[in-house]
């Protein structure tokens, strides 16, 4: 399966691994935004997760505990955001930006002295007979456990949002906090839970970069992945399955661009690298113009909620 000198199967397998960090972070942000909160601090939470996950994994020698550490760290930073926006009613856009600034600084501070160390290895676990299926086997079922976990999380998030009462309440809070409040739901508590979940997911996505993708700790290792995750949520029009697609597309374009170069193709690199964003904007326009409001953003996204009673 070669096209233009590129083996499509290995390309697909690579892009699936490459897209795990942005997939995890975007899934978390999707839940946050579904609850009506816009947290622009994804990059900050990811990089804190990357550094803490790395440190914990090296200290314990166990990457699984490392991922847990990354999740806790991401959630801890998200807790600051939750405190600011939900309790102290600060503006979400400004708080999110401050979160990224703080996260980048703190991570580099924590990471001093952790450069140039190899973390414990996470091995690929091919899924038995599934990995022997032609094409699908190597593409989907011959990776490390986090890849499978990220797939499972896509299903889980979809199921919870669509099929459970908790998901219904979460969406209701995001569509109209006043109505949800009137129905007796604890808007603030639900949103805080969503924010913490988003932080944990971003933290794990960050830890995937420092523990598996790269694997090492260096300052600024996430290099903008958090911002891409934000774009993916929009691209996906707040649907978990499309987040998966979006992550593959965004992760895929950067991989494809390098593969094309390695194969000696002449393509204008810059235009390829801006194309996912342009596509996302077009998708947004398409969503908002024609196919009705149901597919669009949560109605109360980014608005501050204060119950007057």
């Amino acid at each position: 399966m070669d096209i233009g000198g590129i083996n499509i199967i290995t390309l697909l397998a690579t892009l699936i691994v490459a897209s795990v960090p942005i997939l995890m972070a975007a899934l978390g942000e999707l839940v946050v935004e579904k609850s009506g909160v816009l947290n622009l601090g994804v990059e900050g939470m990811m990089i804190i997760g990357a550094v803490i996950g790395f440190v914990v994994a090296v200290q314990t020698g166990n990457p699984v505990i490392g991922f847990l550490g990354g999740a806790v760290a991401g959630a801890a930073l998200a807790a600051v955001f939750a405190l600011l926006t939900q309790v102290l009613l600060a503006n979400q856009v400004a708080s999110g930006l401050a979160l990224t600034l703080f996260g980048l600084g703190l991570s580099s501070l924590i990471g001093q002295g952790w450069n140039g160390i190899r973390p414990p290895l996470t091995r690929d676990v091919p899924l038995g007979p599934l990995s022997d299926i032609p094409v699908l086997g190597p593409v989907l079922f011959s990776h490390d456990w986090m890849v499978y976990a990220s797939f499972a999380l896509v299903v889980a998030v979809w199921w919870v949002l669509r099929r459970t009462r908790a998901g219904l309440i979460l969406r209701a809070v995001g569509e109209s906090h006043d109505a949800a409040h009137a129905l007796g739901y604890k808007v603030r508590r639900i949103r805080m839970a969503a924010i913490l979940f988003g932080g944990a997911m971003a933290g794990m996505g960050g830890a995937y970069i420092s523990l598996i993708r790269v694997p090492q700790w260096t300052d600024g290792i996430t290099s903008g992945a958090g911002w891409i995750a934000l774009a993916i949520v929009v691209f996906a029009s707040w649907k978990p399955w499309r987040v998966l697609l979006g992550a593959w597309l965004f992760g895929g374009i950067s991989v494809l661009q390098l593969s094309l170069q390695a194969a000696g193709s002449r393509i204008p690199v810059e235009y390829l690298s801006m194309s996912p964003y342009v596509i996302t904007i077009l998708v947004l326009v398409f969503i908002s113009s024609g196919r009705g409001r149901a597919m669009g953003a949560p109605a109360d996204l980014g608005k501050t909620f204060h119950a007057s009673r």
Binding site: I6, T14, A18, I209, R213, A225
Partner: peptide, 14 residues
């Protein structure tokens, strides 16, 4: 780092 890793991967695949 992430991009460099991808670049190395792309070369190895070739």
């Amino acid at each position: 780092p992430a991009k460099e890793a991808d670049a190395a991967r792309a070369l190895i695949e070739q």
